[in-house]
Amino acid sequence: MLKAENLHCVYTSGLIKTVKKTAVCGVDLEIFPGETVAIVGESGCGKSTLAKMLVQQLAPTSGEVFFEGTKLTGMNWNNLGKFVGKIQLIPQNPDDVLDPRWTVERSVAEPFVVCGGLSREEISENVDALFAEVGLSAEHKPRYPHELSGGELQRVVIARALALKPELLVCDEATSMLDVSVQAFIVAVLKEIQTKRGLGLVFITHDLEAAKAVSDRVLVMYAGEIVEEGKDVFDRPLHPYTRALLDAVRYASLDVVLQEEDRALPDGFLGCPYFRLCRERTVACKEPQKLRDVSGRLVRCWKS
């Protein structure tokens, strides 16, 4: 359904001396209808940038995104209009997406109002249906964002995203600011919607356990690259970074304080980006690493 080819994103900053920072580097991915894909990585690994490029909120420096065979990248705003709503982003901070001066009902109705063609009654019926779908009651409708809890807000945002009948939802850390019980609730809501509507779901998170509980397929990202991709990644992690993430989420070997500031690599280093932190590194890791197919799994490590 959604296909990304060789996506790159380079941020440049600085006026006199331009500093280039590669956020996403050569990502290929494909999402099939009705599938849940989790993209896992630490903060700063480029997963949010990737999400923004997938939903066309950010133009990639190079590379292409296709939606059901149509190339979206480079399309102008008017033509893109047809695809608007088909791919929706659920961001990390729901209160940021809702206008603080609007009632949540009005926010959920906004997509219908903007797209036009519906009478006031039809809009309000649709809004009621959406509220019911995400498990919110009518008493929430006239409230303002600051009067709702984080979980309720996130459900409002999901309701709004569903308004235009999307085929793909990209959840960018949509649950990581929430409490476990609320997190579980939101995930349950998303899964229910997915089975009912048959949507594709991209679930971006740093929490491998959450990713495992939710997804069919997992992509592990490190330093803008996909280092591992496959179905049973958590039961049989092949890349050392995936193993480190798993250890972290299980709080294994707490006797060592990791020195994450040591990760900086020398300029022009083309080898494995995880070189400095990897406990299993050898000289061969200084060579560029390619994604290799290891029994149905893609791994960017020559050792696997």
Binding site: V55, Q57, G81, V84, G85, Q88, L89, P91, N93, D96, V97, L98, D99, S107, E110, P111, V114, C115, R160, A163, L164
Partner: peptide, 21 residues
């Protein structure tokens, strides 16, 4: 703010965003 970006992404025009948000 996210709501401005979100409004754009549901296809709202610039004028709409300025006036309403």
């Amino acid at each position: 703010k996210g709501y401005v970006r979100a409004a754009r992404w549901i296809g709202a025009s610039n004028t709409y965003v300025i006036v309403k948000h």
